[in-house]
Amino acid sequence: MINIIWFLMIAVGVIFGAINGNITAITDAAISSAELAVEISIGLIGVMALWLGIMKIAEKSGLIQLLSRALKIIMVKLFPDVPPEHPAMGAIIMNMAANVLGLGNAATPLGLKAMNELQTLNPTEDTATDAMVTFLAINTSSVTLIPASVIAIRASAGSANPAEIIGPTIIATAASTVAAVITVKLLQRLPRFQMDIENENIK
């Protein structure tokens, strides 16, 4: 799926660009996007280090285990393959908390930490587990309560009530998150999405 979409976006882009006489724009976009990707990744190093450091303190002090225990009932339902006391659970909870609060800068490092922890439970090297897909589906559907940047843009555009979209946004984001969880749980049963352990690179 990801292979098809990735290829289609490039193919459609180049063909459309040629027809529209935009072909030099394609070259520029390809090069500047590649540069941007490295800029973003390198730019992440500092914030990554900061939040992974804070996370380590939270881990060593037992704060994360405390949080995990409080949310155990939901977490075990969502991630049946992850042992309830596993550090992955704590990292997932921290990531979700950061997302809910709209702390994008903190959410990414905590989410990557969660992926690293989930990878330790993965029997394969390069195939996603059910728990990873569930975690990312919840993440991509976003659970942000306060869309701070949207409110800021609306305020600067002279809205009479910039924050009026908070309620509707919570409803929309809740709907997409519920849909994400249901879709993941349904799709993971389909034969074409099964983890084919025998043909994978086992660690």
């Binding site: 990414t108 992926m115 996603a128 897909v133 997409s176 799709l187 993971q188 389909l190 994978e200």
Partner: peptide, 26 residues
């Protein structure tokens, strides 16, 4: 890209369809 990349996962299974369906619902 970022989350799977961080653990070198290449076979993403149903992650993209699920994400896009959730986007559509949102």
């Amino acid at each position: 890209a970022v989350y799977f990349g961080a653990v070198s996962i290449k076979k993403t299974r149903h992650a993209l369809p699920a994400g896009l369906i959730a986007d559509a619902v949102g």
